[in-house]
Design a protein around this nucleic acid. Structure first.
Length: 214
DNA sequence: AACTCGGGGCA
DNA sequence: TGCCCAGAGTT
């Protein structure tokens, strides 16, 4: 099996194993996705959806949120993990959106990552899922799993993005992200991965290395 | 490069 | 009930 066939075999297996994988965050605008993605670190998508449904009902846009007292915003997002950091970043980001972008969300990596609380991963999520820009968001699950499998061979996130974009057909970038995350949560966990339950043993570089090591 | 954030999820 | 989550910012 050559490299191209190996990548295809991995993607086909992921597609069959996780047929229901899909984006988990609810949003109706780029702004809502930006805020939801900032909130989603260390927090389940389900809880973020609960929080944003109420937050956006009461404060629907950047102008409204930018004027919230920090303690009020903290109360809204209290159940989303690191809420004080997130509240401070969201307030600062909304003020920048209002003052510099007319309340809209910018579309480039350079502009997005200047916003407080927005790093490379969040910027890629917004670009690909809200603006339809070709991008792959590499979070820790995607980084770990794709490098274990050999979908990528990279020491850092940026290079992993390049490897994945080169090896995965563009039309599968979005869904592959969700296949890989699901696999990373359910099977290919950071500690004690369940290799005995993994349908990708035959294609996995991590597994074959572990077998050789004994 | 290591440390911090922090309530929630899960063993 | 106590450990781990996981991205971004800070030191």
């Amino acid at each position: 099996m050559n490299e191209a066939q190996r990548y295809k075999a991995i993607l086909d297996t992921l597609a069959k194993t996780y047929p229901d994988a899909k984006p988990g965050l609810h949003f109706s605008s780029p702004f809502e996705l930006l805020i939801a993605t900032i909130l989603s670190a260390q927090c389940t998508d389900k809880r973020v959806n609960q929080v944003t449904q109420v937050l956006f009902r009461d404060y629907p846009d950047a102008q409204a949120i930018a004027q919230m007292p920090s303690n009020v915003l903290e109360d809204y997002i209290h159940s989303c993990g690191v809420y004080k950091n997130k509240a401070r970043n969201i307030l600062a980001t909304c003020k920048i959106l209002v003052e510099q972008y007319g309340g809209q969300v910018p579309k480039t990596m350079e502009e997005l990552t200047k916003l407080p609380g927005v790093g490379r991963k969040t910027a890629n999520v917004v670009m690909s899922n809200a603006f339809g820009i070709d991008a792959i968001a590499v979070d820790t699950h995607v980084f770990r799993v794709s490098n274990r499998l050999g979908l990528a061979h990279a020491a850092n996130v940026e290079k992993t993005e390049e490897d994945l974009m080169r090896n995965i057909p563009k039309e599968q970038w979005s869904i592959a992200h969700h296949w890989i995350i699901t696999h990373g949560r359910q099977v290919c966990s950071a500690r004690k991965p369940k290799c005995d339950q993994c349908p990708l043993q035959a294609e996995c570089e991590y597994y074959s290395a572990a077998q050789q090591a004994g």
